[in-house]
Amino acid sequence: MEKLILSVSPHISGKRTTQSIMLDVIIALIPAAIASVVFFGIRSLLVICVCIATCMLSEFLFEKLCKRENTVLDLSSAVTGMILAFNLPVTIPLWQAIFGSVVAIIVVKQLFGGIGQNFANPAIAARIVMMTAFSGTMTAWVAPNAINKAVDALSTATPLVAESKGETPPSYLTLLLGTHAGCIGETCAAALILGGLYLILRGVISWHTPAAFIAVVAIMSFICGKDALYQVLSGGLLLGAFFMATDYSTTPSTKWGKIIFGIGCGLITILIRFWGNLPEGVSFSILLMNILTPYISKLTQNKPLVGEAKV
């Protein structure tokens, strides 16, 4: 008879693994990816694939180089690649997309210790680096070609830019469907909401952050005399609220921590959108809140159930 295994309890474990969580996130992102291919053409699929491949490859090579345990199969780098691609315009030169992916994985994630150790969301930090480095190509948004072939590849204002310039804004339906100019994965509000709900129902993310984030944007827009629904459906808000402000390692873990994080993101977004020089502030708001995460976590620690000694 073989030797019996001796180990410390528990002897069973739940089914969820890091890999299955990341797979769920990828599944949740797929509707928006499909929408982007439908609206922006096959090139958006190319950009998504290039980003995913570069992210996974950078992670693989870096960990090989540093003789770290290889984590490429946990799919977290694929998620980063997908989200980064969602934040790029479809016309982005591929070498710039590759550059961004390398920055995301190596500079923002691996140099800080790899999965779970980075303080900033890799996709967001990389996007901001790209915004600064390639401000021209990063804002070369085009109108969806499937809808209007004539203006294909012509730079068009996104809804938020259009609004700030006083042009006629698109209708709610356009915003919901995503048939307007914008980054690859941020335009189709319906697909993003679908993906977000999937993650919430699967228990991968909790509803607290997205709810607080979106609610604050809506309420503040209303108070500032803007169209609340328009503000919620346009820009990168839904993508940010459901997929980037819910990243595990860069956001607080407790219920109240998540709510505070969401409120903070909402307020900064509104500040940038209404009073800043940039048309959109979701990325910056999440990055700034990432920096505050350790403090929020400290403030919102769960209180152990110590009880009081009865006299």
């Binding site: 890091t18 999965i115 407790t254 159930l305």
Partner: peptide
């Protein structure tokens, strides 16, 4: 026994502890 991988800071442990430990 499943393979141990790096902590992803998902917070599942502290959100499932009956005594709210971390």
């Amino acid at each position: 026994q499943h393979k141990t991988t790096p902590c992803i800071r998902c917070g599942a442990c502290l959100n499932h502890c009956p005594f709210r430990l971390n």
